[in-house]
């Protein structure tokens, strides 16, 4: 299934894509980069694909796990999105292929109490997001970037992408999501970074 899905509309504020529109696509305090900078809080994991799984657990009736092969068979689509990192770079029109979080959650029966999603990764990284912020096409698990398999340094084999939040929320090397009733600040959120991280509100740091 190939379905082109252009999602720049997440951040609103743009129309035809002319030069005059570029400025309106840059969140406050950000600058445009043409590179794809690599940021990492630890060594790059190298989990063999035959050992890779993606798991949904927590407040679901029955936990669910896909192998790499099974994950590849899920309905995927193309996404073109602008990405902003809290270290102040913004990269426009990044092309990804992946599976929406909506599609992933279709496979489970979600408990009514579930309100937050914790994404966890190889290497121990975590990040937290309210469920309403990742539904309705707002987040996806990407395994291709620019038409090629996602490189390990960019989070491959698969990473979360949440375009409407600073990029630390787009957990590299994602291996699963856990649904919870209570929020649980992740790796950076627990040490001074903003719990929500909306780049259009410039939510870089927590309140103090």
């Amino acid at each position: 299934m190939t379905e082109r899905f252009v999602t720049r509309g997440f951040v609103g504020r743009r129309s035809s894509g002319g030069p005059e529109d570029v400025a309106s696509r840059i969140p406050p305090g950000q600058y445009i980069t043409r590179d794809f900078p690599v940021l990492s809080a630890g060594p790059t994991p190298r989990t063999p694909l035959e050992q890779w799984t993606f798991t949904i657990q927590g407040l679901v009736k029955q936990p669910l796990s896909w192998s790499w092969q099974e994950f590849q068979a899920l309905p995927a689509r193309e996404w073109t999105v602008d990405i902003s990192c809290v270290t102040k770079w913004t990269k426009l029109d990044m092309h990804w292929r992946g599976v929406s979080v909506d599609t992933l959650l279709e496979g489970v029966e979600i408990d009514d109490r579930a309100a937050f999603m914790i994404a966890w990764s190889d290497g121990g990284y975590t990040t937290n997001l309210p469920l309403p912020d990742v539904l309705n096409g707002q987040a996806f698990v990407a395994y291709e970037y620019d038409g090629a398999p996602l490189a390990p340094e960019h989070g491959g084999p698969a990473r979360l992408v949440v375009p409407a939040r600073y990029f630390w929320k787009s957990a590299k090397w994602i291996r699963g999501i856990r649904l919870q009733a209570e929020d649980e600040p992740g790796f950076w959120e627990s040490l001074g970074y903003h719990n929500r991280g909306d780049q259009w509100r410039e939510e870089r740091y927590s309140g103090d």
Partner: peptide, 26 residues
């Protein structure tokens, strides 16, 4: 690891995080 939103110091033996440093505006 300093190319990140903060600096992370890890054990050279087991790789566990030993220290994390985040500098915010305040």
């Amino acid at each position: 690891y300093v190319r990140a939103p903060g600096s992370v110091l890890r054990c050279p033996i087991c790789g566990a995080v030993m220290m994390r440093i985040v500098q915010t505006d305040r």
